[in-house]
């Protein structure tokens, strides 16, 4: 397996709703994969299943660690899973409040993952936190500031800094620009794009925003009612959509 992550035949229903219906997908090192589709099509569910936060009814997710060993994600122990989520993986939530500790300073938020993996030198933790604030374009002078006093865009950038500080190879993002002003969205997307290129990150990103997908993603998956109706290189899918649902999606963006 050369992919970082490989999912095969994932299915999951909520009652009679097929949130995932036989979904397969691969993510290669350094690759950005966007998942687009209408509300309720199963995007968040897919992200949660891929990242091990939710168990599928059928199918499997495999992950390759930095040493090259392959693990079945849903068979990993809880301790190993936690470690993975703090080291080689990251998860950026749509609502920064779900990914930040609101009553801990910006520096403490960034430092948490470092401390969780054993960093015990205050000065280095702090230096690293300041450096990451700078990288996500937050004034390092705000290192002791509380995230509750940050704007929505800053909170999201802080969440990204906190996630990337342990240099994960694979990051899951669920609508990271959702709920932000359009101008703030554009700036955040630029920043994500720069970080992804700089760090060689692999990213699975869920978005409503076709323009964002075009900007960031190498590959695109289009979901509808729990199924992947089309997937391929981003430009190919957007410029020459094959499935009528994708055609509709692209047309609606062009019209807007």
């Amino acid at each position: 397996m050369t992919a970082l992550l490989e999912a095969t035949g994932l299915s999951l229903r909520f009652g009679t709703v097929p949130a995932l219906d036989d979904v397969s997908l691969e993510v290669f090192p350094g690759e950005v994969v966007a998942i687009v589709g209408e509300s309720g099509s199963g995007k968040t569910t897919l992200l949660r299943v891929l990242s091990g936060m939710m168990r599928p009814e059928a199918g499997a997710v495999r992950y390759r660690d930095p040493e090259g060993s392959v693990h079945v994600v849903h068979e990993m122990g809880e301790a190993a899973m936690r470690r993975l989520h703090r080291t080689d993986w990251g998860f950026v939530h749509q609502n920064p409040r779900d990914g930040l500790r609101m009553r801990v300073s910006a520096g403490g938020n960034i430092g948490e993952r470092l401390m969780a993996v054993g960093a015990r030198h205050y000065g280095s933790i702090r230096a690293e936190a300041a450096e990451w604030l700078r990288r996500v374009e937050i004034d390092p002078a705000r290192i002791d500031g509380m995230p509750a006093l940050f704007s929505g865009g800053m909170q999201q950038r802080l969440q990204i800094a906190r996630t990337l500080v342990t240099r994960p190879r694979l990051v899951f993002m669920d609508e990271p620009t959702g709920g932000l002003d359009v101008s703030v969205q554009a700036r955040l997307l630029d920043m994500i794009r720069a970080l992804v290129a700089d760090l060689g990150l692999a990213v699975v990103i869920v978005t409503h925003d076709i323009a964002a997908a075009r900007l960031l993603a190498h590959r695109l998956l289009v979901m509808r009612q729990g199924q992947v109706v089309e997937q391929g290189l981003t430009d190919r899918v957007l410029d020459d959509p094959q499935h009528e649902y994708t055609q509709l999606l692209v047309a609606s963006v062009l019209a807007a």
């Binding site: 801990v104 300073s105 403490g108 401390m115 933790i125 702090r126 290192i143």
Partner: peptide
């Protein structure tokens, strides 16, 4: 440790 970090900060 986050709590201790916050105290020192």
């Amino acid at each position: 440790h986050v709590k201790l970090y916050e105290d020192i900060a």
